[in-house]
C-alpha cells in the first residue's frame, strides 16, 4: 500500500508552526517512512501534482491569495488540519481585526514610526498584489476544517502524535501538557 501524502502551507503565519514540525527532531526519519510529502515549503513543490490525503495549514487568511491557496488545499486534500493559533483564531495578525483596513494601511505607510520618504503618500495598490481582507479570518470560517491543533506554536509532540494517530488509525490521546494556546 502506498504511503499517505501530506501537503503543508503557511498563510498569514510566521512559519513558527512549520518550525515546530521540524522540532520532532530525529522522528523526522520515522515520518518519511510513514508519509510522502507533496506541495509544501519543506519540499519546495509549489503546486499540487497529485491528490493528497492530509493538508496541514498554519496561519489565518489575511488576503485574497491566502483564500485561493486555502481553497486549493480543500480541493486537493481529503483531510485538512488547522495548525496553530493563527489558523484557528487569526492569531496575532488578527489583532488588526476591528480596526478599519484604511486605518491600518495609513498607519503602516504614513504614520508609523518606521515610515520614511513616503512624501507622495502612496499605499501600494498594484494589481499584482493580493487584496487585503477586511479582517483576518480563521481557516474554518472560509472552508471546512477537519482537525485543529492549538498552540503558538503547537508543541512538536502534539503534531507528531496527531499525524501518527491519523496515519495509523489509532485513537489520539492527548496528554494535558500538549494543549496550549501560547
Amino acid at each position: 500500500m502506498s504511503k499517505p501524502i501530506v501537503a503543508t502551507a503557511s498563510l498569514a503565519g510566521c512559519f513558527g508552526c512549520h518550525m515546530s514540525v521540524l522540532d520532532i527532531d530525529d522522528r523526522i526519519l520515522q515520518l518519511i517512512e510513514l508519509v510522502d510529502f507533496n506541495k509544501s515549503p519543506i519540499t519546495d513543490i509549489k503546486t499540487f501534482t497529485q491528490p493528497c490525503d492530509i493538508g496541514i495549514i498554519e496561519g489565518g487568511c489575511c488576503n485574497s491569495e491566502n483564500i485561493e491557496v486555502l481553497k486549493d488545499f480543500r480541493k486537493n486534500c481529503k483531510i485538512l488540519i488547522s495548525l496553530g493559533e493563527c489558523a484557528i483564531m487569526g492569531g496575532l495578525p488578527a489583532m488588526r481585526n476591528g480596526i478599519p483596513v484604511r486605518e491600518c494601511l495609513e498607519e503602516a505607510y504614513f504614520g508609523g514610526v518606521t515610515v520614511r520618504d513616503n512624501t507622495e503618500r502612496i499605499i501600494p495598490n498594484d494589481e499584482e498584489l493580493p487584496i487585503i481582507l477586511d479582517k483576518v479570518y480563521p481557516l474554518h470560517e472560509i472552508v471546512k476544517i477537519d482537525y485543529f491543533l492549538p498552540g503558538c506554536p503547537p508543541r512538536a509532540d502534539l503534531i507528531w502524535e496527531a499525524v501518527v494517530a491519523l496515519v495509523t488509525g489509532n485513537e489520539l490521546k492527548i496528554p494535558y501538557e500538549l494543549i496550549k494556546f501560547d
Binding site: 493559533e85 483564531m89 496575532l92 474554518h140
Partner: peptide, 30 residues
Amino acid sequence: HFCPSCEKSGDCDLQGLGYRYQMMVPRFPY
C-alpha cells in the same frame, strides 16, 4: 483573547479552563 501575546498566559483561569475542557476550537464565530 490573543493568548500568545498576553502576560497572563499560563496563569489565566479562562485559558486554564480551555485546557481542562480541551477546547481545540470554539464552535461559535469570532
